[in-house]
C-alpha cells in the first residue's frame, strides 16, 4: 500500500474547545473477495483497508473497523475537539498489515 494516495482536510484554525470536522480520502480498490475475475472466472481475493484511526497530538480521537461493504476509494468524515494547536495523524491499515499515514495541522486560536 506504499503507493496509496490520500487527501485529508481539517480546518486551518479553530477556537479552543470547538468541535471541528475532519475529512479523509484514500485511493484503494477495496476488493470484497466476492468479485470474480472476468477473464479467469476465479474469485479475486479479498484485500481491503480494515482499520482507520485518527490521533490528535498523539492521543486517539477516533477509530474505526471497516468491512468489505465500505466503498472503493474510501471517504470518511468525523469530528474532534482541540484544546491546543497540534497535528492530526490519519492512519489506514490494510489486510496485509501495511499502514499509510497522512497528517494535517490545526491551529487553536
Amino acid at each position: 500500500m506504499a503507493k496509496a494516495k490520500t487527501r485529508v482536510k481539517v480546518p486551518k484554525s479553530v477556537k479552543k474547545g470547538e468541535v471541528f470536522e475532519a475529512k479523509a480520502l484514500i485511493k484503494h480498490k477495496m476488493e470484497t473477495g466476492q468479485r470474480k475475475d472476468r477473464k479467469t472466472g476465479e474469485k479475486v481475493p479479498r484485500f481491503i483497508i480494515n482499520k482507520f484511526t485518527a490521533e490528535y497530538n498523539g492521543k486517539q480521537v477516533f477509530a474505526s473497523d471497516w468491512h468489505p461493504a465500505i466503498a472503493a476509494n474510501p471517504f470518511i468524515s468525523f469530528h474532534a475537539k482541540a484544546s491546543e494547536s497540534g497535528t492530526m495523524v490519519f492512519k489506514w491499515t490494510d489486510d496485509k498489515g501495511k499502514t499509510v499515514e497522512a497528517s494535517a495541522k490545526v491551529n487553536v486560536a
Binding site: F20, V61, A63, S64, H67, I76, S77, F78, H79, K81
Partner: peptide
C-alpha cells in the same frame, strides 16, 4: 463498519 469515539471526539457524527 464500527466506529469508536472518546470525549475528545466532541460529537459522535460520521459520514462514510
Amino acid at each position: 463498519a464500527s466506529f469508536h469515539f472518546t470525549p475528545q471526539s466532541g460529537t459522535a457524527k460520521v459520514g462514510v
